[in-house]
Nucleic acid binder design. Structure first.
Lengths: 323, 323
DNA sequence: GGCAATTACGTAAGTGCTAACGTAATGCGG
DNA sequence: CCGCATTACGTTAGCACTTACGTAATTGCC
């Protein structure tokens, strides 16, 4: 599912969707078993049933909704004959909600239905159901204690100040090497077997033969990567350049490129080339600015089906340096 | 919070509430940081940004909503100038949604904001955030694979057939002894120190002095309990009778009572009494039917402040047997 | 090639909730 | 006891989403 790839960014959407599924399931169970109530009524009715008559605000606070919601729902329940409103004799502002006999009878017969729901949820969700309940509980508390908006804005402020940083390969970043590249590969092309080999086993396929891998970090977030492959003695290939789309425009690509070129020089290489695809206009432009020159033909014996562009590093003295 | 006491029964409500909190947080962050988009727009816009132009149905499937929702949202985004609709030249039914330049620019600048949201969520929720994401993912899959309604209805059918079963005390049921009694105690009265001692340490306070504890089970669910306390040689007290309100009317109370009386006889007791409160009408009626006789005074030296009823077991030969 | 079934979509109506507002009753300090 | 702040609540308007329905275009099948 697409939403899951967004992880924290789409939490609201996913929780809403999950919520709706549970509501719908409960409604169907109530309908099939002839309970005569709806899932949305349940929290209010159950609360009144357990605690006895209560004011609108009390109910609202207990079930975590606004007084308006409770008031409107009370109207509907009253119309259905399940609930009665009456004024509080002691306080004219308040309106006491109490179940009618019919309301009590509706709930009294639901014991087995509720037990069935509890058990059915456990059958279907198994251990995940408990995990979900616990996680929800923990998150509710965490949100109360540590307001999330402040945290995000604080992070935002520091991120805006912080600069992109280039770091060499570390084993614990291996998965990022795969993820960052898999993203654009699957978007524009397909992952070829050679890609899979390099991305899954970078130590063996890149580092061991004499290549290098770099990552771009912004704060704690890994936002890009690129690889320098050792193709033959003195011959290197620039490859696997990927920057998270959410972080385009911060100059991470150019910094990665500069780091790879510097490493190429440090190792005393004499030829640096790359293969790409003509549809990746912004990337090609960046390569040109860094000193790569477009070749009239594709590379003989190219490794990749998608490669229709072949460039060789041949900087003029005035090649634009990284910003 | 009241809702958490309902556990599986109110999952929908709680997830909805949590969802709203995340939406509200995201909206505030976007507003403060001047992003110019709303949280509800995010899934659609991000999808179009990553995958390029797409049809209404494609988008709807990706983000897990109906085509109507996407269509209506597309109207609003088009009105805001962030998105353009155009017909698919190849298929006249379809309408292609594509971000405008303005839309792309809106998203392009959000890299740091999204990173901040990811980090801020982690700051605030810590490990719980990951747990929540994983649990949601797992539950989504579980619901797809094992339709929850069928499970619930299956359980419902077997529960309706199954009978209430009385079992003796086991250590793993200890918490139920506390929970079932604490529920009605806090509802109608308060938990007195003596209650707390008995409920927390039933082995020491009830079993060791020569008493007994019974539980009523319906399938796997523990729905009621009661205790037979050894007060003095040959003298027993019936106490701590509690049945989950959701399971009233199944006869569990009477079965528990019969089990306790049988145990009283088995141990060769000569006096069985109970203390209760006059407000618990249905319970008092049940005690009478079982052979308890109301005494004119409260018990001398009663243990409980709430006790204003004193009954002694004195069955006539024709005492109503359990149904 | 013709016709039914399917697909893709827009629109209308309804639901469940919120925010915002108005009003009446209550509490409180002087 | 008066005036003002607070509270409790109902009402209205609006939002996000759904279901239901209608329509046009496409597909599939003989």
């Amino acid at each position: 599912m697409y939403l899951s790839s967004l992880s924290e960014l789409a939490l609201g959407s996913r929780l809403k969707a999950l919520s709706d599924r549970f509501y719908a399931a409960a409604d169907e169970v109530y309908r099939v078993s002839g309970a005569g109530i709806e899932s949305r009524w349940f929290p209010v009715m159950r609360f009144l049933w357990e605690r006895g008559p209560a004011t609108v605000t009390e109910v609202a606070a207990a079930i975590g909704q606004t007084h308006s919601a409770v008031s409107q729902l009370a109207d509907r329940l009253a119309r259905a004959g399940l609930l009665k409103r009456r004024g509080d004799p002691g306080d004219g502002r308040r309106s006491l909600l109490a179940l009618t006999d019919k309301g009590c009878r509706s709930l009294a017969g639901l014991g087995t239905t509720w037990a069935a729901i509890r058990q059915g949820v456990r059958d279907s969700l198994g251990h995940e159901g408990e995990n979900l309940l616990q996680a929800v509980q923990a998150c509710e508390r965490a949100l109360d204690e540590r307001p999330i908006v402040e945290r995000i804005l604080a992070r935002h402020a520091t991120l805006k100040r912080s600069k992109v940083e280039i770091v060499p390969f570390e084993p614990r970043l291996r998965e990022h090497f795969h993820a960052l590249n898999a993203h654009w590969l699957t978007k524009h092309f397909v992952i070829e077997p050679l890609d899979e080999k390099v991305l899954r086993h970078p130590e063996q396929a890149v580092l061991a033969p004499g290549g290098a891998i770099f990552f771009a970090r912004l704060g704690e977030v890994v936002i890009g990567t690129c690889a320098l492959l050792h193709e033959a003695p003195g011959v290197y290939e620039l490859s696997k350049m990927g920057v998270d789309e959410a972080f385009r425009g911060l100059g991470a690509g150019r910094l990665l490129l500069d780091a790879a070129i510097a490493e190429f020089h440090r190792r005393g290489g004499h030829t640096l080339f790359l293969e790409s695809n003509s549809s990746l206009k912004p990337a090609l432009h960046m390569y040109e600015r860094a000193g790569f020159v477009l070749q009239p033909t594709i590379r003989p014996g190219s490794h990749y089906a998608r490669a229709d562009v072949y460039m060789i590093y041949a900087p003029k003295k005035s090649a634009t340096p990284g910003r």
